[in-house]
Nucleic acid binder design. Structure first.
Lengths: 122, 122
DNA sequence: ATTACATATGAATGATTGTTCATATGTTTA
DNA sequence: TAAACATATGAACAATCATTCATATGTAAT
């Protein structure tokens, strides 16, 4: 129906449904928003970070606690905590030598839960 | 208070709060669950895939439509659609030469929304 | 049958990234 | 002040991954 051949800019094929494409394009969010969204999910896309977040959802912990819990080196944990902090997913407070980390966003659990809904679906 | 020195398995530090760690450990989900969760979010962690999913949430589209919309090659889109299909996030139907893709999970939008809530938070 | 076209796919490549190792920083205690 | 320790960080390395390129597959039209 809506067939129409267009010199494709970059895609190496003809457009089939240009009306649909235009309608979708009009409704798409800003490029930047989608980029930020991908960046956020990228942070969730690592099992070490997921485990850290899940642990911190249970209790505030220091770096060493987390390393021990996950059986990983302090350095590896520290690097990942930095990523989580930059993403504003965790915060920390210092008490002497010890640095305690905790969740900085109560939505983390909700994002997890939505993910679990998908996983547990057949 | 709960200080206790333990020969750390793999972490190169002493455990500070073993009671907390044990309590958290008892509440952690299965390793596999968290791994699957990370795998799912990894799929969301790419702006091309995010854009495809967002577009498909608006309308069913064929591969060429999507390539044109996102100004990318048909091949790149096809590769990413395969990833999305494996993650059971999209499904497809064939009509002659043309393959139409659509969302396979109505929770995708909810996961997006949760992510956006975090992003739009200061 | 042959051509045209939509889509899929394997190999190659460049970029990104998680972990390790070595070491630096900062705080506490002796 | 010096030693001990928690944490942070930079460089290096291996692994993963998104895209490209070339080409294969399958369908429709001539």
């Amino acid at each position: 129906m809506s067939k129409r051949t267009v010199p494709a800019d970059r895609c190496d094929c003809e457009v089939i449904h240009e009306d649909v494409v235009n309608s979708v394009r009009a409704k798409m969010p800003k490029e930047e928003t989608l980029y930020d969204l991908a960046e956020l999910f990228k942070v969730f896309g690592d099992s070490t970070r997921i485990r850290i977040l899940w642990a911190l959802d249970e209790a505030e912990m220091c770096v060493c606690d987390i390393a021990y819990l996950l059986n990983m080196t302090q350095s590896a944990i520290s690097h990942q905590l930095r990523v989580l902090k930059q993403a504003k997913l965790v915060r920390n407070r210092k008490e002497g030598k010890v640095v305690y980390y905790s969740l900085d966003d109560e939505h983390v659990k909700m994002i997890f839960d939505q993910g679990l809904v998908h996983i547990n679906e057949e």
